[in-house]
């Protein structure tokens, strides 16, 4: 207990991994990475590594769950048992059930569900390595996977966490900062719709800190959004001539 914990932010405003306060971890985003699914995506943010896949629209099961005027979305956010320090029990934890719900609700706000009555769209998010920010990275990948499947959406959505660490607001907290920080706020937005699709807060913030955190999140989300667009456009690169039908 006597061990003195290292400060998370240095005098000159650097974080323990060397990042500036408003700097996110290196990101990699790819679309169309799993062949069996109708649409898929992969995201890496630092050491966080996540696959997302979309199946459907397909028949809703059981059939009584089908809605006559729109598709239903099913979403499963799951962490592999080896994705964390130690070993996580393989089944769905309460945390995973809650996160599956908030991610699904975020996606329901952007998918044009009315287009596919009586059907179901399944979204699977599998975290193969968790190093903070998994729900927002998972949502970012899921949104991309939906677009990859050609399912009509109002906009893409992307998400990132902001944290309060030693009194300062930081973008994309690391696991260490998340654990020892004062607050963690996952945010996801559909930027072109000018809207928030997911918002949670764990920890304490006053209203001016909240505003600062939200605008910092917007900054990170704009970067992720551009990467999503690039990943999608890549599928069409080199298509210089489109045939007539």
């Amino acid at each position: 207990m006597e061990k003195v914990e290292q400060r998370l932010i240095t005098e000159d405003g650097r974080r323990i991994d060397g990042r500036a306060l408003d700097e996110m971890r290196p990101v990699r985003i790819e679309a169309g990475v799993l062949d069996r699914s109708d649409g898929s995506a992969y995201i890496e943010m630092g050491k966080t590594k996540i696959y997302a896949a979309v199946y459907g629209p397909k028949e809703a099961h059981p059939r009584h769950l089908a809605q006559p005027h729109k598709a239903i979305l099913n979403c499963r956010y799951h962490m592999a048992s080896f994705s964390v320090e130690g070993r996580k029990a393989p089944g769905m934890t309460r945390r995973e059930i809650e996160l599956s719900k908030v991610i699904r609700e975020a996606l329901e706000s952007i998918v044009i569900l009315e287009e596919f009555p009586r059907s179901a769209i399944d979204i699977f998010i599998e975290v193969i390595q968790a190093d903070a920010g998994t729900r927002t990275a998972g949502l970012t990948a899921a949104s991309l996977a939906l677009a990859d499947a050609g399912i009509p959406v109002l906009d893409l959505c992307a998400g990132i966490a902001v944290g309060k660490v030693e009194g300062r607001i930081v973008l994309d907290p690391s696991e260490e900062e998340d654990k020892r920080g004062e607050a963690d706020m996952p945010v996801a937005m559909a930027p072109r719709l000018g809207s928030i699709v997911l918002l949670q807060l764990n920890g304490r913030l006053n209203s001016s800190e909240f505003r600062e955190a939200l605008s910092l999140a917007k900054k990170g989300i704009d970067v992720l959004y551009e990467l999503q667009r690039k990943a999608l456009s890549k599928k069409f690169s080199g298509l210089t001539q489109i045939g007539e039908d």
Partner: peptide
Amino acid sequence: DEMAAIQKNLQGLIRFDTIDEVIR
């Protein structure tokens, strides 16, 4: 003065221009 938890609940969009009023 301080918030401790936030949860957006239900599907749907929260427009940026409503957030300040929500907090207030």
